[in-house]
Simulated scan of single mutants.
Amino acid sequence: MIRVDNVTIGYGTTSFIKAVDNVSLELGSNEIVGIAGESGSGKSTLMRAIYGDFSTGLRIQSGTIEGQFTDPQTGAVTQAPSTDFRKLWWDQISYVPQGSMSVLNPLMKIEEQVIDGLPRRERQGSRSELRARIVKFLSGFGLGEHVLDVYPHQLSGGMRQRVLVAIAAFVNPRLILADEPTTALDVVVQKKILLMMVEIQRKLRNTLVLVSHDLGVHYQITDRLVIMYKGQVVETGPTTEIFANPQHDYTRNLIASLPRLHGQRATDRVGA
């Protein structure tokens, strides 16, 4: 689906600040891929480049990011470089950012923000018909109709994050990129959000890419894991294999830092 080939990515026009250094990876169909690493390792920069968001000085200095998407309804195949991915937003690629209060417009009710995130073709019919579709869809995320009639600050952090996930999943995109989607949520709400994202991926059979500095989160949800350190990919492979036999010192340190209970690692597989 997505091929990242020896990309070096950074910021700036007159001067270049490198954030991702010569990274290669592939994202296939129907899988959950985790990208892990400490703050500043290049995770979010790589995600933004894969999403095709070059609006704030982000640029690819060398290498390529290319995607191939098959429309599940028509069977039509679209091939494009990441610089053209903006045309595929919401239809084929969607993004779940971190920090719901910094993303949701505080001056707009939730209904307006859901509708604002939909492609034009999804807004056909009357307003009442569209609202009914949205209500039915949100119910699958544990969100009642009343959520549409309030402002973001009137919802809990967990409910706001569910709204963002729902917006991202509404048109059944083939690729969902989630950047620290459970940051600042308590562990109970965090697990609910993760379980919901697993259920969405299983239902849509699409690809979910999850960025998190928390290796425990990756153990719970991902099929395959990419470890980044200082802008580079230092290890990649099936998640359970990396936990069982990490090859890089940085990966070993990350795993060793996970909390343990009675000698066992305090993690379990969500949905297992």
Rank of each mutant, 00 (worst) to 15 (best):
S29T: 12
P81L: 10
R86I: 12
Q61M: 09
T56A: 13
F54C: 07
A49G: 08
N105P: 01
A36S: 10
N105C: 03
G99E: 02
K18A: 02
M108N: 07
I65C: 03
L46W: 05
G63C: 09
I60S: 02
S44A: 08
V20I: 13
I50L: 11
P81V: 07
A76P: 00
F54Y: 14
M101H: 00
G99P: 08
F16I: 11
Y51W: 10
Q98R: 06
D91T: 11
P97V: 02
V23F: 11
T70E: 12
M108L: 15
D53N: 15
L46M: 11
Q61T: 00
Q79V: 10
K87N: 12
L104H: 09
M101Q: 14
I65R: 03
N105A: 11
V20A: 12
S41W: 07
Q73K: 11
G99Y: 06
A19W: 07
D71R: 01
T83F: 05
M47F: 13
M47A: 15
S44V: 09
V33S: 03
G40K: 06
M108A: 05
R86W: 13
D71Y: 03
N30P: 01
T83D: 06
T83C: 02
R59N: 11
W89A: 02
V77C: 04
P106H: 10
F85C: 05
E26V: 14
V96M: 04
I93P: 07
E38Q: 07
I32D: 03
S62C: 08
L104C: 02
S39R: 00
M47Q: 11
D91Q: 10
V23R: 03
K18R: 15
S100K: 07
T45G: 10
M108Y: 13
W89I: 05
L27Y: 05
P72L: 04
Q92G: 05
S94I: 06
S100H: 04
A80W: 04
S100L: 00
K43H: 08
G67V: 07
I35N: 02
L46R: 11
S24T: 15
E38I: 09
V96W: 02
Y95D: 00
A76L: 12
T45R: 12
Q73H: 14
W89G: 00
P106D: 06
L104S: 03
F16W: 08
V96P: 01
G99I: 01
A19Q: 06
K18P: 03
R59F: 10
S15A: 13
T64P: 01
